[in-house]
């Protein structure tokens, strides 16, 4: 009768242990560019897109290159696998996930944080200002 609990317990414990270890392996830290360069691990860097530096879309490799400035004001080239992300231009900040290698940050994913899906940014633009600017 207790076999049932034994089997169940074993399944649960085995998976939680595997899960725990794999969890530690695949967890991604928030870091600055300098920290990313030092560690060489996959990290997540938050910063701003440097708009006045050029961006480039490489059609052959399908990579999008731009420059980002992190919280320490360090600027680095970011090479993203894929095209320019949606909402990129209106992003108030960007989050790049990837590794720092050979002088550039190679990102597998870039998240854009912006007034979007469920949130507007009412402070940014008051209707009065819009009217003024359209006059």
């Amino acid at each position: 009768m207790k076999k049932r609990y034994l089997v169940g317990g074993v399944i649960v414990v085995v998976f939680l242990v595997i899960g725990g270890l794999s969890f530690l392996n695949s967890s991604v830290e928030y870091a600055t560019l300098s920290k990313a360069e030092k560690s060489g691990k996959k990290v997540q860097v938050t910063g701003k897109w440097v708009q006045d530096m050029s961006t480039h879309y490489d059609t052959q490799n399908n990579t999008f290159t731009f420059y980002m400035k992190d919280e320490d004001d360090r600027v680095a080239q970011v090479v993203l696998e894929g095209a320019k992300p949606n909402n990129f231009d209106i992003a108030t900040s960007v989050v790049a996930k990837g590794r720092y290698e050979e002088g550039a940050f190679y990102a597998s994913e870039v998240l854009t944080k912006c007034p979007s899906k469920y949130e507007g940014n009412p402070e940014g633009q008051h209707p009065d200002e819009i009217k003024k600017s359209s006059l």
């Binding site: 998976f15 270890l21 794999s22 695949s26 967890s27 928030y30 997540q44």
Partner: peptide
């Protein structure tokens, strides 16, 4: 060399989801 980060890479769910889905 284990360390805990701030987010989890989606590969974690794939890695864990696979054996669980099989079971």
């Amino acid at each position: 060399s284990y360390s805990l980060g701030n987010t989890v890479d989606p590969s974690f769910y794939d890695a864990m989801g696979l054996p669980l889905a099989i079971l």
